[in-house]
Design a protein around this nucleic acid. Sequence first.
DNA 1: CTGAAAGCGCTTACAG
DNA 2: CTGAAAGCGCTTACAG
Lengths: 343, 343
Amino acid sequence: VAVTIKDVARMAKVSVASVSRALNGHLAMAADTRKRILAAAKKLRYTPHSAARTLITRRTQTIGALLPDLHGEFFSELIRGIDLAARAHGLHLLVSSSHGDAREAATALRAMQGRVDGLLLMSPHLDASMLRRNLHGDLPMVLMNTALKRARCAVLNIDNYGGAYAMVQHLVDQGRRRIALIAGPQGNFDAAERSRGYCAAMARLVPTIPPEVLAGDFGEEAGYHAAQQLLANKLRPQAIFAANDMMAVGCLRAFREAGVRVPEDIAVTGFDDIPLARLTTPALTTVRVRIVDFGTRALNRLALMMEDRADATREKHAQLLGAELVVRESCGAKQDLATTAVA
Amino acid sequence: VAVTIKDVARMAKVSVASVSRALNGHLAMAADTRKRILAAAKKLRYTPHSAARTLITRRTQTIGALLPDLHGEFFSELIRGIDLAARAHGLHLLVSSSHGDAREAATALRAMQGRVDGLLLMSPHLDASMLRRNLHGDLPMVLMNTALKRARCAVLNIDNYGGAYAMVQHLVDQGRRRIALIAGPQGNFDAAERSRGYCAAMARLVPTIPPEVLAGDFGEEAGYHAAQQLLANKLRPQAIFAANDMMAVGCLRAFREAGVRVPEDIAVTGFDDIPLARLTTPALTTVRVRIVDFGTRALNRLALMMEDRADATREKHAQLLGAELVVRESCGAKQDLATTAVA
DNA sequence: CTGAAAGCGCTTACAG
DNA sequence: CTGAAAGCGCTTACAG
């Protein structure tokens, strides 16, 4: 039923080899022959069979993205960025997400093998040995947001550390010195980096004040409870830095209920700049990550590796994607400072 | 470099045909031969070349999802649902989104052709003639959230109409009769269906009250401005039904600034139940759509069509996914009514 | 139960 | 500039 290269060859009265050449834009061809072939292909609405082409060229024109089981807007923005860049490169996008554990992630990884020319990897379940065991050959790969280091593998991380550092810096600039952190979940790379940034900034900027870290899990409830806990303290902090916006939202709710004014009595800040952040009362000061950019850059990096391994490998392996401070109301800073770039 | 079926055959001292049979689970085999083959395959870490297999079986084990340029959480939830179901069926997922116009969508459609065994289609840019022009053969397809009708094509829609109707019903039950709608963007299918549900409910439940529809675009700003406009009216409505939550959030902001109390002075409700909805003050009464379910059901439907065309076609073509009322504070109803299922 | 062979639809040296 | 032929890695009648 489908029309093949043979049909085109027959109609244009040439060999299939010539059709192949014409369609792939080889130069050494009589202009007239090429025109006849192209016309025939068009009339027959010919589309080359991609599997046949893959079988012989060993290229799929497809990249795979292995993503965590991510809820929320981060994921859609990321895919958008990847998809946009993929289309710009003429690449297809095979997606696999929502693996609950290492075994599922490994299965997904193996299944992609042979179907893609390159891989974007962002999975909390994949460690180095996992990769080694499930990946033969040397598929070009970009590791995203991971502590993993791997030879011949590009790494692209969000500057969680820098963003967190900048936030503490900003709060200290506002005269807040006792700053508490509500941390993210254990074992989460973003969370760990944000904590690290907070601790480093505290040690450096207000060395006399002991850092105070409360447990959290990136959920709104966790922020709510942490805030309540903080209220029970004798010496309240002057600012709370929640490791993500949802927890900051939880803090706001706890303080509203307790009659504690933000930012007058206490400053509250977050991380991520989710859409909700500018809609809370007061609007949330936070750190913005350009997620679409993150996806786009990862894919561009991968495309580079796929085109020319040597060149891409020569680049610095780990790259950081800047995070920028977004100053709104919840930190008590003068609004007109507006958005300040960082990193 | 890659290991092929020949290598396995050589190691197991059988023909490639036998290897193929063993790997594909054909029954007519000596148990001993099969065991030898499987062992060899395992030792060599053999993975069949998917393109070669596709070339001969005409199956890609992949489905394509053509999605609109969607921002926000809806998209990630949808993909999650699709991805979960796809994995359950052993299918790969090729994604293409973010097409700005009909031409891009058509290109994406053509590019998927031949790479997938079935298609999930949700694009505002694709009309029937578009599909006819860019699709040869009869690829199994599920149309999502569309007014399109197409022979031999399953359709799966969200019950926007029913959800909107239920919301008006609920408001009327609360004693609100003058209910204004802030509509979604022109040409948007969801928006049109929600408007239709609103108008039908008004005509039926409060026939003496003329419906009042304000223009909107699903953005927070549009809700803000519509609310301000409503405030300028002599006769204020008793309730505002925003066609989505973001516009309802805009309304809340406008009313807060104007000192109008919600729900005492006016009720405000939305549609979608985005995560933000339960975090606003007051928390938003809205209509919830189970998006993950939507994706899962669409894929399951498609898988059914792929396995057995006749059976799937025998089913009712258009299916509706229920939407349920979520009663919170912004409508002034007693909280303990809690969530009420609809449809 | 097993193997030799044809063939899926392409691309690419190799000749001419 | 063009064509005949080999071959990519599989699966599946067809024999035996």
